[in-house]
Nucleic acid binder design. Structure first.
Lengths: 202, 202
DNA sequence: GATGCAAACTTGACATTGTCAAGTTTTCGC
DNA sequence: GCGAAAACTTGACAATGTCAAGTTTGCATC
């Protein structure tokens, strides 16, 4: 019961879990269907009982990532119900930490697994739900005057872009050494967010 | 002389060009060394005379992309020497257009081809040069009061993150339809940049 | 409880691909 | 002209995504 009873049981989830594990250990280059199958203790074609192809597995792994990220941000929100000043920074920081904890999974989540939205409705729905979650955070910040007012969906796109961009550039090693030597990630994040806010954050 | 005289000539560049072409036509999934070789009219292992492995070819394709982007942005800068108000938006817009003209190449450029900086010094140098180029744009904007003052390298990271994040999210289909239906890309870009500026841009 | 069927899984095969080792051709300095 | 380095070809191998055919298994129905 610890993991799952293969040979029947819920292989589907075992495969996703195996994929996440391989992704963390070997990176996206090491993620193959056959390795995932072996890790789960089944034959190389077994995944095809549950996933149409490799893309579908990746979509499932991504979807699961979105769900976990959602939960983590919900916890941040719950912890800051009465202290909205810190909500923005802490939410962004949680996002960043999620990305740095599992860089390859994070990249997968935001690498057009889709191509055709309709193909993976779970994925689309999950990612939409996460967007709405951020919209709520942004609205909270607007309502207490931390962020300027304006259409909350557009403002969300702006703030999200900023944080996401910083995470991506950092993850891909695009921030020059000269900058990395002077500031750590959280300092860059706070500085960056402060460009947007009406009050000084820390 | 139009393209190159294989069988001798500069295959190296022909391979890069072939790679760019395939990337544009079939996307990153269709980019294989063998296809690149065939496209260039040589045998399947010929690329190994010029590139250590597939990663090295990708690094070269990316590097070439950085150089082209650099040139395009230089043109924008030259055209706005006397009109710094528009420089920020136009530079960002050029960046965005570059990304949307060749989405797969753009993604490659910002997908840790590296893993180990030292391996592709050309790539690192090119990307550093592009960063410095943006720093100069940012400093110009700061000096005329469009952007707040502050450490220009950090400010560059902030502004770049914002634009890059927006491009990435849009490229990967992460911007919800509800938002895309209301605003086009340039509107989102201008709105987003306006969150940072001290004067209203258009 | 036996029967039969659909779902879950295995086996075996094939084409594509990255990569290497060994040979062959070409170029060019001397 | 000669010989060696560079540029390329050929042939091979292992890993991989995918499919077609079979086999097992659980389960609903009689």
């Amino acid at each position: 019961m610890t993991t799952s009873n293969y040979h029947h049981g819920d292989l589907k989830n075992a495969l996703i879990k195996a994929g996440v594990k391989i992704l963390a250990k070997e990176g996206v280059g090491g993620l193959s269907l056959r390795k995932v199958a072996k890790q789960a203790g089944v034959s190389h074609a077994a995944p095809y009982s549950h996933f149409a192809d490799k893309q579908a597995l990746i979509a499932a792994i991504s979807t699961e990532g979105f769900k976990q990220l959602y939960i983590q941000i919900e916890e941040i929100r719950a912890a800051h119900r009465n202290r909205p000043e810190a909500l923005l920074v802490e939410t962004a920081w949680a996002y960043m930490q999620f990305a740095f904890n599992e860089p390859d999974r994070f990249k997968l989540m935001f690498s057009s697994v889709l191509e055709k939205e309709k193909e993976y409705p779970d994925f689309v729905e999950s990612s939409k739900k996460n967007f709405e979650q951020i919209v709520e955070v942004i609205e909270a910040c607007q309502s207490v005057g931390i962020l300027r007012s304006g259409p909350s969906d557009l403002t969300t796109v702006s703030v999200w872009s900023m944080v996401h961009g910083l995470v991506m550039l950092a993850l891909e090693g695009q921030i020059p050494h000269a900058v990395l030597d002077q500031y750590n990630l959280k300092e860059m994040l706070v500085f960056t967010l402060n460009q947007l806010t009406m009050v000084e954050l820390s």
